[in-house]
């Protein structure tokens, strides 16, 4: 039922032309809700270039292909090694991190075009920079933490079987980048924070709920999490398109998490019905 994921390491690629220039078509906006426009930049490509290095070049040389001076393109970035999640954007129509997007793979020939767009499921701050605060808000909504007794030394945590640790570790590598949400047909742009508590939480948060439900102490908040996920915007809003697992850069088994939460709320609902 599954096709090879989109984020698998790339097969040997077409040889890239050294010393070439590549056209960047960038969807820009000066501010939230502002009109978007396309601008094109011709960028010389050194060896090992990625989208970030090209955006850095544009920042230092903000001139469009038509020779017009413009402002540097705004974008979000951090670690540049695909572990912080900041530099997520839509490249050639698909969401991914821009730091790991190698120009040699995407535009091996002279004059090849790469399009950059901001993620469409989050309000644009400026240009390619979007506001993903809803994702962090959602982590509050599902109480994504272990309710410890405080930061003083109170002895070790619970022992854990290696298999359980491996399950949790993978889930815990989620960097809140938003790829799964951008590709999700059920996740929609929501500008109003008032609606954050009832809009769809998306795959990332469902997977985090599973992560904390799997921890011996984190389990204490499981009923709260499940109640939150039974309501509007919870797990039932998933449409099972399963794009999330295809685009997750960390190969997190998001669809398994969704099913696991589905099972948990089913059991929880029956238990609540009969137990009161």
């Amino acid at each position: 039922m599954t096709s090879p994921t989109d984020n698998a390491p790339h097969a040997p690629r077409r040889a890239a032309t050294p010393g070439r220039s590549v056209i960047f078509r960038i969807l820009r906006a000066d501010g939230p809700g502002g009109a978007q426009r396309w601008e094109e930049f011709k960028v010389p490509i050194p060896a090992g270039a990625n989208v970030i290095s090209c955006l850095q070049w544009i920042a230092a040389n903000p001139v469009t292909t038509s020779g017009q001076r413009t402002t540097p393109v705004a974008w979000d970035s951090g670690c540049l090694e695909e572990v912080c999640g900041a530099c997520t954007m839509v490249i050639n129509g698909k969401v991914r991190q821009s730091c790991s997007c190698l120009i040699d793979e995407y535009a091996p020939g002279e004059g090849d075009v790469i399009t950059l767009e901001p993620m469409s499921k989050f309000p644009v701050v400026r240009d390619l920079w979007v506001d993903r605060s809803r994702m962090f808000h959602t982590l509050q909504r599902i109480k994504a933490w272990v309710p410890i007794d405080g930061t003083y030394d109170l002895g070790p945590g619970p022992a854990e079987r290696p298999a359980d640790q491996e399950t949790r570790y993978v889930l815990s590598t989620c960097m809140t980048c938003g790829c799964c949400l951008e590709a999700c047909p059920q996740y929609k742009l929501e500008r109003d924070p008032e609606n954050f508590d009832t809009a769809f939480v998306g795959a990332a948060a469902l997977s985090q709920a599973r992560l904390f439900n799997a921890h011996k102490t984190g389990r204490d908040l499981k009923p709260d999490r499940l109640e939150a996920l039974m309501g509007p915007g919870g797990v039932n809003d998933c449409g099972n398109a399963q794009n999330c697992v295809q685009v997750c850069p960390k190969h997190i088994p998001l669809t398994e998490s969704i099913a696991a939460i589905g099972r948990a709320v089913t059991i929880h609902a029956f238990a609540r019905f009969f137990r009161g």
Binding site: M1, A183, P185, A241, Q242, N243
Partner: peptide, 11 residues
């Protein structure tokens, strides 16, 4: 944009 089999079935 995301022509995966699962997504096509969703649609």
């Amino acid at each position: 944009r995301y022509p995966y089999q699962g997504n096509r079935r969703y649609a």
